[in-house]
């Protein structure tokens, strides 16, 4: 147990294993950029694509109706009243449509809000093109101010035929900390 070569071998293997553990720790953090790279490559959750969609045009398909359900959500942080004007609407694919949301800042001070969109089902995301959206930019609010927020969109006629219903939801965040 006390012989020197064994001690040396133990020490060197121990060092290698600590390096292995440190590498695993670093790998945990490397997963963060890796995750973003995978999202970019596969196109899931890619926000730049949402902006590019503003120039989208397609012929209207009068024979098909798609139901768009509208949802709103405000997280525990911040103090908002936030709701869609109507619960759902029916649109023809290819036609420019519009949906309205109402948001009210419930605090007695001015704040900047940022809305984050989400589309369900996920496979429909790339067929839903927003040409104009309040989520593209931060939205300033005065104290207690209520505002109407507009999103204009076109549903791509290439939307798979098995999907007849999309859900568009927004979460309203307090953007103060990041502005």
């Amino acid at each position: 147990m006390t012989d020197a070569p064994l001690k040396k071998a133990n020490r060197s293997l121990t060092r290698q294993l600590w390096i292995f553990a440190a590498g695993s720790f670093a790998f945990g953090f490397a997963l963060v950029p890796l995750y973003n790279v995978i999202c970019d490559v596969t196109g899931y959750g890619d926000r730049t694509k949402l902006v590019e969609a503003s120039s989208f045009t397609a012929p209207e398909d009068k024979n098909r109706l798609v139901t768009i359900e509208l949802l709103s959500d405000s997280p525990a942080i911040g103090d908002w009243e936030f709701r869609p004007a109507v619960g759902s609407l029916e649109v023809h694919p290819g036609r420019l449509s519009e949906a309205k949301f109402y948001a009210r800042n419930l605090r007695n001070q001015a704040v900047v809000a940022q809305a984050i969109p989400s589309i369900a089902p996920l496979q429909a995301t790339k067929y839903f093109h927003k040409t104009e959206c309040f989520c593209f930019t931060p939205q300033p609010f005065e104290a207690q101010q209520e505002r109407e927020l507009t999103v204009r969109f076109i549903v791509d006629p290439k939307l798979p035929v098995n999907i007849d219903r999309l859900t568009l939801s927004y979460v309203m965040y307090d953007a103060k900390s990041t502005s």
Binding site: A21, G23, S24, F25, F27, L31, V32
Partner: peptide, 14 residues
Amino acid sequence: LIAVMPVLAGAVTM
């Protein structure tokens, strides 16, 4: 253990 416990440590550090 040495491959994944540090990953948990990283996640909770985040």
